[in-house]
Write a protein that binds this DNA or RNA. Structure first.
Length: 243
DNA sequence: ACCCAGGGTCATA
DNA sequence: TATGACCATGGG
């Protein structure tokens, strides 16, 4: 049986094609299985503007220093040096302390689980050092709320794919995508969608020069279409005929 | 030597 | 509202 081909342009079709190409991404990755949900809070802060491999080093030294709990992190006098390899470590140490205190004051996972999603996201964004993206990452991966992560990769993909860059703010793109997807979309969908967008951006849709020749979305991508149009005149065939 | 990475804050104009 | 400087390590 031939596998299905998804020809639609919408986000549902885009998801299916990405999934078909890259498969499940198994996010959020965890280092220590004892406190997997709290580790997501920590990782979400550490990974800000940082390659994940550097977060892994910081996470492993954190786990070596004690259990990954809010109380233990607050007790670390040398938190800065423990997370040094994640970069911007003074800032991130302060942000982690903020987050840990918030978590304790809120009453932990059981209490926060009863919060409304909007309430949760607003509360997270109110913390110094947690912007819209980190707040949504925590809401989605640690608290299993349906949120679209409108990160730099999503902006890039959307701008190239649709050919329009009308969205400039985080909330504009997040709202646009969530409205189009509708309320029936599951948390698992958003979980996988963000991970797939990251995988696709890393492998194909780079910042400078996207590898459009290998892109599985190229047939519907505005950026690819404009590239093909520009390349219609100066082909090697043309010059070989006219030299 | 430069650019980038699973961002966010703060100071200017 | 919209840029720019800054944070800072590590890999390509």
């Amino acid at each position: 049986m031939a596998r299905a081909v998804y020809r639609g342009r919408g986000w549902q079709a885009l998801y299916k094609r990405l999934y078909q190409a890259y498969g499940p991404q198994y996010w959020w990755p965890t280092h220590d299985r004892r406190n997997p949900r709290f580790e997501i809070l920590v990782g979400a802060v550490l990974v800000q503007h940082t390659a994940w491999r550097n977060v892994e080093k910081a996470m492993s030294s954190l786990c070596r220093a004690g259990p990954l709990t809010a109380e233990t992190l607050l007790a670390h006098e040398d938190l800065e040096s423990l997370i040094r390899s994640a970069g911007t470590y003074r800032i991130k140490a302060a942000r982690l302390r903020n987050l840990c205190q918030w978590f304790i004051d809120a009453g932990g996972f059981a209490a926060i689980a009863t919060w409304d999603t909007e309430q949760l996201c607003q509360s997270l964004r109110a913390l110094s050092g947690l912007g819209p993206e980190t707040a949504d990452v925590i809401a989605l991966y640690a608290f299993e709320r349906p949120r679209f992560i409108a990160d730099a990769y999503a902006f890039r993909l959307f701008a190239r794919y649709s050919g329009q860059d009308e969205c400039s703010r985080y909330d504009d793109l997040a709202r646009l995508v969530m409205d189009r997807l509708g309320s029936s979309v599951t948390v698992d969908f958003y979980n996988e969608l963000h991970a797939l967008i990251v995988a696709h951006a890393k492998q194909i849709c780079h910042k400078r020069q996207p590898a459009c020749r290998h892109c599985i979305l190229a047939d519907h991508c505005a950026h690819r279409q404009s590239q093909l149009f520009q390349n219609t005149v100066p082909t090697t065939e043309y010059y070989s005929h006219h030299q």
